[in-house]
Design a protein around this nucleic acid. Structure first.
Lengths: 113, 113
DNA sequence: GTATTAATTCGACTATTATGGAAATATGAA
DNA sequence: TTCATATTTCCATAATAGTCGAATTAATAC
């Protein structure tokens, strides 16, 4: 991933409503969510959410698909993977950034405290 | 990591100069870099870089330490770890986000000791 | 065709962020 | 103390981002 795209993706996620919207889309999985449904669930005006979805979309983090009158949005996991990979490669000293998802029992905390 | 802090960290990295500054600090490792040295290396006015360093600092991604007349800045790897972990847990479907950046040359020089 | 539903784009506004020179603060040296 | 260095804070300004009602486009149904 190129740094300009990473910056766009980071900026897209760096906002309360957008982060929440993205999280909901991730949770919704492959089925995705229609724009209006999402706006109502979040208690945000349609036009505001539309603005935020456009930003996420422009950053490549979500994709849209028209189904009848609705526009279904879905998280693009590959883009998210690419972003996480970028951060680990470029911002974690080139070494392992100890990714450790919480479900895995942890052996020991390193010197950290 | 709490979502408010994640948003701050994401926002801190979502800017060209700040992302570059952070990357340079990561590369510099434990020795850190003085503010002025970094500003000159990046070709950015001192006052501008100071503003950006303050943002990174406020987001918890870097720390500062005075050494004589200089202020040395260092990347805080734990904060970065926490951010990556947050993204993987909350924005990758709760499952593995297939991080695997294949072969990274392990640099081995880090606080682990 | 008109009406209804779903969503976006427009427009006007407010708020936040970024920029960089000048002034202020902090340290160390003569 | 006075001078030089290192960096921040202040200030004014420019630029970008966020908000949301109203107008517009798109699809479907009657």
């Amino acid at each position: 991933m190129e740094s300009g795209l990473a910056i766009k993706a980071l900026g897209a996620l760096a906002q309360e409503q957008r982060l929440e919207a993205f999280r909901r889309l991730v949770q919704a999985g492959d089925g995705g969510v229609a724009a209006g449904t999402l706006a109502e669930a979040m208690g945000v005006p349609n036009s505001s959410l539309s603005f935020h979805l456009a930003q996420l979309s422009h950053a490549g983090l979500i994709v849209q698909q028209r189904v009848g009158r609705s526009l279904i949005y879905r998280a693009d996991y590959r883009a998210m993977n690419a972003l996480v990979a970028y951060l680990m490669e470029n911002c974690c000293g080139g070494a392992v950034c100890s990714p450790v998802p919480s479900s895995i029992p942890q052996k020991a905390e390193r010197s950290a405290a």
